[in-house]
Design a protein around this nucleic acid. Sequence first.
DNA 1: ATCATTGTATTAACGCCATAGTACAATAAT
DNA 2: ATTATTGTACTATGGCGTTAATACAATGAT
Lengths: 123, 123
Amino acid sequence: MPWVFNDNMPIYIQIMEHIKMRIATGEYKTGEKVLPVRELAAEAEVNPNTMQKALSELEREGLLYSQRTSGRFITEDSKAIEHLKNSLADEYISWYLEKMTQLGFSKNDALEQLKININKSNA
Amino acid sequence: MPWVFNDNMPIYIQIMEHIKMRIATGEYKTGEKVLPVRELAAEAEVNPNTMQKALSELEREGLLYSQRTSGRFITEDSKAIEHLKNSLADEYISWYLEKMTQLGFSKNDALEQLKININKSNA
DNA sequence: ATCATTGTATTAACGCCATAGTACAATAAT
DNA sequence: ATTATTGTACTATGGCGTTAATACAATGAT
């Protein structure tokens, strides 16, 4: 499965978001070992240095930890993972409301437009 | 009113979005003259070259046009402006649904979470 | 003990973004 | 006619992101 990046944001930031998403949804499980940097880099078709940068940032944020030579693992702090999922969701909701408000929609309009879009794609 | 930028995207891209928003909402009206590059740059606290880049990109997209020395103007194509507003809204909606879906929410969950957030902030 | 695997560090090169400073061409204002 | 204003172009500099290539240290596997 190819990792998709866009050009207006640093790749390493997008990798971080990608991995956060996988942790938040439980696709990467608590304490689970992740693939070695070099393999992840190959999978994402990215330079190992770039992957390393993303991973060490995630480590700094406490979502991963590495053991010198046995590999790198997802945090065992399940509260942190729960918190991650909630804060991502909050982030997305706030962003949506903010943008729609800037566009001139009220909050209820923003809700309505979402409803309409969902119903449309169900038809 | 200070223009707010974040660090993970080129400033000129963010300026483009900022101005698109103003055009879409009608804050900048059809055919209206916009401030000279240098003044916009000063207002945004950005280098004139950066503002120039954003403006010429918007011109390439047909949202602005410039007359050699009399200044720069908002497009008079009101259909394009209407289309801009719709496509921005669609973009925001799709993005929200996509992210929430990736996080493991169903579309209806995404709707519910939005409702909850709106009610919370009204309380 | 040896070897492969792991995370990590370092150096070099290139491109894009942003700033700074300067200049020019066309036109509007006087 | 002269001047100010406008968009535009150009050069140089610095920083960050990305790739490439290489190397080292620690440990697990054999």
